[in-house]
Computed example of a mutant assay.
Amino acid sequence: MTKQERPLIERNIILVGFMGVGKTSIGKKLAQKMYRDFVDVDQEIEDQEKMSISDIFKTKGEHYFRKLEEEIVLSTCEQKLKIISLGGGAFTQESIKNRCLADGLVIYLDIGFQSWKDRVHLLVDSRPILQGKTINELEHLYYERKDAYARHHSRFLTDSFSVDDAADYLKESLQLAYEMET
């Protein structure tokens, strides 16, 4: 059975979206509720390299980071029954986007720019791509990345949901999709 023939219920659920949208928080909660393993690609990279993503960017560069990110995502996509949280920039890589769309169920967690802007102060120190940028540059990056997330299987606007409520909503939606497939 090829991955494309894999039943929907066995496919990985892949969460994509802009940094700070809640992919990790919602993904962990969703994995608990669905009895699946959770994989945070950024955490996998940090564990493998034994340094923070900020330090990887500083010492080895973004190109090194993106290559490592690609290897880990493609390898993780080979597995099944996972909830996978991609870093905000991962889905801008065509090889990652194509593999995720072909082998998994890609859910785009979206957030309005104003809601995201209210969170930016919580993100700047841990996100090297944000450091030293003006609010106009951040807005440009936000909309540029939004274009990259345009190809997905489902979109969920997180602005007015708590982490728990978002995970419950996604679980219920996925269960409905699984039932419709059978």
Rank of each mutant, 00 (worst) to 15 (best):
F57A: 06
A102Q: 13
S54I: 07
L138S: 04
E94T: 06
G87S: 15
T158Q: 07
E10K: 12
Y108H: 11
G112V: 07
I56M: 06
V120Q: 09
A177K: 14
G88C: 04
W116T: 10
M19E: 10
D165R: 13
I13V: 15
F18P: 02
G88Q: 03
F161S: 04
I129N: 00
N12D: 11
H121N: 12
T24C: 09
K58M: 12
S85E: 03
E5S: 02
L174Y: 08
D147A: 10
R151H: 11
M19A: 08
N12A: 06
T182I: 12
L8R: 13
L170R: 05
V163K: 04
L105C: 10
V41R: 00
D164L: 13
I56S: 03
L170Q: 06
K117P: 00
G27S: 10
S154Q: 09
T2A: 01
E137P: 02
Y35Q: 11
R151Y: 06
G88E: 03
R6A: 01
Y142S: 06
L68N: 06
Q48W: 07
R127G: 03
I84P: 04
D37M: 08
I107M: 09
Q93N: 15
K50E: 11
L15S: 03
G87R: 03
L74G: 04
Y143P: 03
A166K: 04
I13N: 02
S126N: 13
S95H: 02
I83Y: 08
K60D: 06
R155L: 12
Y143W: 14
F57R: 08
K50C: 09
V120T: 14
P128W: 08
L74K: 10
E179F: 13
M34C: 11
M51S: 07
L174G: 05
R127F: 01
G87F: 03
D165A: 15
V39P: 00
Q79E: 10
K171V: 09
L30H: 10
V124N: 03
E71G: 00
M1D: 02
L105A: 00
R151V: 08
K28L: 15
A150L: 10
R127Y: 02
F161R: 02
G104E: 03
K97R: 12
L81Y: 13
S126G: 14
V106W: 00
I9W: 14
D47W: 01
A166P: 04
H121G: 15
I96L: 01
E94G: 00
G104I: 11
E172Q: 15
A31H: 04
D55C: 06
R36M: 11
K3R: 14
R66M: 04
F38R: 05
L30C: 13
D118A: 15
I96V: 13
T24E: 05
M51D: 02
G27M: 08
V124E: 14
Y169D: 12
H153M: 08
H140N: 13
K3W: 05
I96N: 06
F161K: 08
F113H: 09
G104M: 05
T76I: 02
R119N: 09
D159E: 11
S126P: 00
Q4F: 00
E71L: 09
L8W: 09
L174D: 00
H63Q: 15
S95W: 00
R66N: 05
I26H: 01
G22M: 08
H121Y: 13
Y143N: 11
L123K: 09
P7V: 14
H153F: 05
K82E: 01
Q32E: 15
S126C: 10
